[in-house]
Design a protein around this nucleic acid. Structure first.
Ligand SMILES: [Zn+2]
Ligand SMILES: [Zn+2]
Ligand SMILES: [Zn+2]
Ligand SMILES: [Zn+2]
Lengths: 168, 168
DNA sequence: GCAAATTTGCAACATTATAACACTTGCTGC
DNA sequence: GCAGCAAGTGTTATAATGTTGCAAATTTGC
């Protein structure tokens, strides 16, 4: 599996998209799931940038390209993509973002820039471990997690504070 | 500050409520904020149990006790309570829960039982630290967090699996 | 081909949240 | 006390997000 580019830096984003679509096709083939035209198009729209998209944004884009869709069409496609781990829903934004670890059965940690909207999905073993420990200490059995951190991404930090060095 | 009771065990919940209201009054007095009748009543309704309440649930309860309120009334009260850290909004549920660390300027970690709906708010330094480290490793400057863990609380675990010992 | 199952189209509806504006209340300075 | 002002509340309408139910079309398995 190739290393993913960081969304903060300029990168060949077409590669992000085609990688995501290729992964999706593989995953669906392996699981005998039907990645139909609409589902694939919704996934592609979500991957058009690293900024999450609302269901009605997707609906509008489908509409603008001639596909006269109603809300259930979009939500059903999203349900499918969620089910197979191809996208995530960001509860704090009511929006959807492509999963950059599709097929790895995980719950991500999302860094959401409130300035530019860019989202980076991480997997952090220390975070998962700390949460698991905290839950276990309460005899709570964790099953799903919503971990969304809002803040400033490196690019927007640099813009806000031009003199400061980046430690990246 | 007295130790809070755990919501999972039977406890004198009236004490939770009156403690929360007393804290709220103190905090508002200190900050010259007006804890008006509606705001206080909304806070009290939210604290009526350890299960989060939707804005329209609050609205319905206000209605059933003769206060003929419209949505903005409730949302304005909630905005006020959020602003002063007296309640939290749970993004994964579109619902509100009383803050059990009011005045301590924090972002909580919420353990949400998907069986009974009970929510426990924690503060976990290891979790906060791990998240901070993960963000910093991406040169991301965190400002706010949405940390909501869904799973089974100890009571519901015991019901689901009666033979198992509780490690509590 | 044909029956069954899945997917899509479509209309209506449910839930959650906000905007705009008028009215009331409580404080401030006189 | 009382004008003037800011903060809070009432009310209506509307926006944004998400769901239900059913019929038509497509795909699948045989
Ligand atoms: Zn990219
Ligand atoms: Zn940014
Ligand atoms: Zn209690
Ligand atoms: Zn809290």
């Amino acid at each position: 599996m190739p290393e993913r580019a960081l969304p903060y830096r300029p990168h060949n984003h077409d590669a992000c998209v085609s990688q995501a679509l290729a992964d999706a096709r593989t995953i669906c083939r392996e699981q005998n799931a039907r990645l139909t035209a609409i589902r694939e198009r919704v996934l592609e729209l979500i991957w058009q940038s690293h900024k999450p998209l609302g269901a009605y944004d997707i609906l509008a884009q489908l509409g603008s390209e001639g596909h006269n869709a109603a809300p259930p069409t979009v939500y059903r496609a999203l349900d499918f993509l969620l089910q197979y781990g191809l996208v995530h829903r960001l509860a704090s934004l009511n929006a959807f973002t492509g999963c950059s670890h599709a097929g790895e059965n995980h719950h991500g940690l999302f860094l959401i820039c409130h300035q530019c909207g860019t989202v980076l999905e991480l997997e952090s073993a220390p975070v998962s471990q700390a949460i698991d420990d905290a839950a276990r200490a309460q005899a709570f059995q964790p099953e799903g997690a919503t971990l969304e951190i809002s803040g400033l991404c490196p690019r927007c930090r640099a813009e806000a504070n031009p003199g400061a060095p980046s430690h990246d």
